[in-house]
Write a protein that binds this DNA or RNA. Structure first.
Length: 699
RNA sequence: GCGCGCUUAGCUCAGUGGUAGAGCACUGCUUUUACACAGCAGGGGUCGUGGGUUCAAAUCCUACAGCGCGCACCA
């Protein structure tokens, strides 16, 4: 006799208990799966940063991943889904610094060792919270293999990779370059970590001898070492190559004195980088404080004069008049001086983009700094070739264009950071750490035991089948995993990269905790249940780039779970025991379904196909419509008819409908399906988690 | 400047050549022992705009507009 089922499905009462059953079964660990499993299916979680709690993007991403993983497990694959967390270098350091600031402390007050202890405490707290939240979502990851990018063996892998690039390939070098410097974080950051945001400023037209030229940063005038024009600009051909003697401001006059003129001499060079049509078609070249100018400087062997230091203040090269001022203060001062001296022709309002730090939003100062770089030329070619050869697929395909373009234009990667939190650069006497993405790039193989290529996991589970993430880290992460995998293992680390939609608010805004526009997935689980959240997210998933999140759809998911629950209640009562004689029947034995359109088998095949092709929304729509409008509204209603022709056939169909529905829905709604399954009057049943999928992989 | 995505019911969105769909919201009826987290019935859209292809276009082509995103520039 079946146990009594309550009238409404109660996720709160069910979910924790069911998850514990799965854990107890050990089936999240591939070696413990029942039966013989020849085919393997492997994927890694995109390790969340230890900086905070899970957000809707994670919920979507991991739900979709779990849908695939659960289907593959039921299809008889030996499935490994490897979980973990990322130490998140600069991001983690910044959140801990913010915590310290509340106590009125800076990291320097603690010293390096104590500070790192604080970060580790933070990691314990939030790392654990993230893993607990993953359980609430129902993720079927192998907890026995949880990895952390700061695990000792992972650190070894990072070290090995660095030294290989450095010593064997000679692709890592230390050099002085103009890099993006964050004054607040006190570190260099990569091009990908700079956000350019439009800001209202001024454009200053300054007289340089016979010319007038426009600049938004007049204070950098003190570091000018040339003027540049376009080679084809006929207005200036006579000047090219000449050394001009012009009047400028005397920076050695004390600040409190009135400004004075002085003569300086400056070269005019011709360079393609100059736009003839902007301003007066002539630019000042400040090789030390602008990346483009630095490149012009190299092409024409111009001297480079650093005038801004790492604190964002003018240094001694700026002269006594300006030394010690912040760049913004120096700008005001020099503008007044130039105006007094009659060297400013006009000032216009001007909106331009200002680079800001991705992590702390401070203005970025481009300045020359000694940093470690990884040569990208050969690695970029490897990553390009891997994609073009079809070693892996990008889904949706439209990301192939941006992927290629980025690699074709990529500059050498600045991999050193002047932070305390991260992987130490493994060179004697170096105090810098590595860019956090340097270690993330190794994730698919370093988690499996590499560099020990004899490690059982590496041999058994590499390369993986797929990886999924948001579009925002395609270049930061996926691209770098591809070239790392190609270089160190000779294989693409995964067969598919699935780029899922970015979760936005209903108004199309970014979900952000600080803007107050974030939605906490755990709150939604408490309100509607994990199955409802999962089904609702899957239902809204298309291959579009954005997903405007609507809570209505989660409500729909809740109702859908409840509907399934009640379908089960009806069928259990209607058939009234003795199910085992129906269970051996295959899906095709559902005869009555034909007359109601959309037979069970076709539906199952379509759902299978769509999940396999990452068409989650499509799969969810099909199963929803079929269950609700065919099985419930039509077949079940018909089965209530007193003079039904063949009672035995009705019962058989109802049982088979339910069994197959539960299986098909399990990847989407694992808790409610497992709970119903556990209450069915069937003998010798396994957990639904490892039951057989209703139809073959390929119809 | 280059590229990508989107523009369908009040809201969020499915739908890629053949008489407009879902969820939520709304209206009316039904508490009939699976479910009121339900059932039945219903209202609501000239599918962004112009042009083209076709017997036939929301669906293909083209131009334009608006919104969003990425890359480059940002002197």
């Amino acid at each position: 006799m079946p146990q009594e089922l309550s009238k409404a499905y109660n996720p709160k009462e069910t979910e924790g208990r069911i998850y514990q059953q799965w854990l107890d079964s050990g089936y999240f660990t591939p070696e413990k799966l029942p039966g013989e499993r020849r085919k393997k299916f492997v994927t890694c979680i995109a390790p969340p940063n230890i900086t905070g709690e899970l957000h809707m993007g994670h919920a979507l991403e991991t739900t979709l991943q779990d849908i695939i993983v659960r289907m593959k497990r039921m299809q008889g694959y030996k499935v490994l889904w490897l979980p973990g967390i990322d130490h998140a270098g600069i991001a983690a350091q910044n959140v801990v610094e913010k915590e310290l600031a509340k106590e009125g402390l800076k990291r320097q007050d603690l010293g390096r060792e104590k500070f790192i202890e604080r970060v580790e405490q933070w990691k314990e707290k939030y790392g654990t919270a993230i893993l607990e939240q993953s359980k609430k979502l129902g993720l079927s990851v192998d907890w026995t293999r949880t990895k952390y990018t700061m695990d000792p063996d992972y650190q070894e892998a990072v070290k090995k990779v660095f030294l290989y690039y450095y010593k064997e390939k000679k692709w890592i070098y230390k050099g002085e370059r103009v890099i993006n410097w964050c004054v607040r974080c006190g570190t260099s950051i990569s091009d990908l970590e700079v956000n350019y945001v439009p800001e209202k400023g001024k454009l200053y037209y300054i007289k340089y001898g016979p010319f007038t030229l426009a600049t938004a940063r007049p204070e950098t005038k003190l570091g000018d070492t040339a003027l540049a024009v376009h080679p084809n600009d006929e207005r200036y051909t006579t000047y090219v190559g000449k050394e001009l003697e012009i009047e400028s401001v005397d920076n050695n006059v004390l600040p409190e004195q009135p400004p004075k003129l002085k003569k300086i001499s400056i070269r005019v060079v011709a360079d393609e980088a100059v736009d003839k049509n902007f301003g007066t078609g002539i630019i000042k070249v400040t090789p030390a404080h602008d990346v483009t100018d630095s490149e012009i400087g190299q092409r024409h062997t111009l001297p480079s004069i650093t005038i801004v230091d790492q604190h964002g203040r003018m240094n001694e090269n700026a002269g006594v008049r300006y030394q010690g001022l912040k760049t913004s203060e120096a700008r005001k001062k020099i503008v007044v001086d130039l105006q007094t001296l009659g060297l400013i022709e006009k000032i216009e309002d001007y909106e331009h983009n200002v680079g800001r730090c991705d992590r702390c939003n401070s203005v970025i100062e481009p300045l020359p700094s000694k940093q470690w770089f990884l040569k990208m030329k050969d690695l970029a070619q490897l990553a390009l070739k891997a994609r073009r050869d079809g070693d892996f697929r990008l889904i949706p395909e439209r990301w192939a264009g941006p992927y290629d373009r980025w690699l074709e234009n990529v500059r050498d990667w600045n991999i050193s950071r002047q932070l305390w939190w991260g992987h130490q650069i493994p060179i004697e006497g170096e105090t810098d750490v590595l860019d956090t993405w340097f270690s993330s790039a190794l994730w698919p193989f370093a988690t499996l035991g590499w560099p020990n290529t004899a490690a059982p996991d590496f041999k058994e589970y590499y390369p993986t089948n797929f990886i999924t993430s948001d579009r925002n880290i395609l270049f930061l992460w996926q691209v770098r995993m591809v070239f790392s995998g190609m270089e160190f293992t000779g294989k693409a680390p995964f067969k598919d990269i699935y780029i899922h939609a970015t979760v936005l608010t209903k108004d199309g805004k970014r979900m952000s905790k600080s803007l107050g526009t974030g939605i906490n997935p755990i709150e939604l689980i408490n309100k509607y249940g994990a199955d409802a959240l999962r089904f609702g997210l899957a239902y809204q998933t298309t291959d579009l780039q954005d997903l405007r999140f609507g809570e209505d759809t989660i409500l729909m998911g809740k109702k859908f779970a409840n509907k399934l629950w009640n379908i089960a209640r009806y069928i259990v009562t209607r058939v009234d025991g003795d199910w085992d004689r129906y269970k051996p029947f295959p899906i095709d034995k559902i005869s009555g379904s034909v007359s109601f359109g959309g037979p069970m088998r076709t539906t199952a095949e379509e759902v299978t196909k769509h999940i396999s092709n990452y068409r989650f929304g499509e799969a969810a729509h099909i199963i929803y419509d079929y269950m609700w409008h065919q099985i419930a509204d039509k077949y079940i209603e018909m089965s209530k008819n007193k003079d039904t022709p063949d009672e035995e056939e009705i019962k058989q169909n109802l049982v088979l409908y339910l069994i197959n529905l539960l299986k098909l829905l399990h990847p989407f709604m694992p808790f409610v399906t497992e709970e119903i399954w556990s209450k069915l009057p069937l003998e010798n049943k396994k957990l639904l988690l490892v039951e057989d999928w209703p139809v073959p992989e390929r119809a």
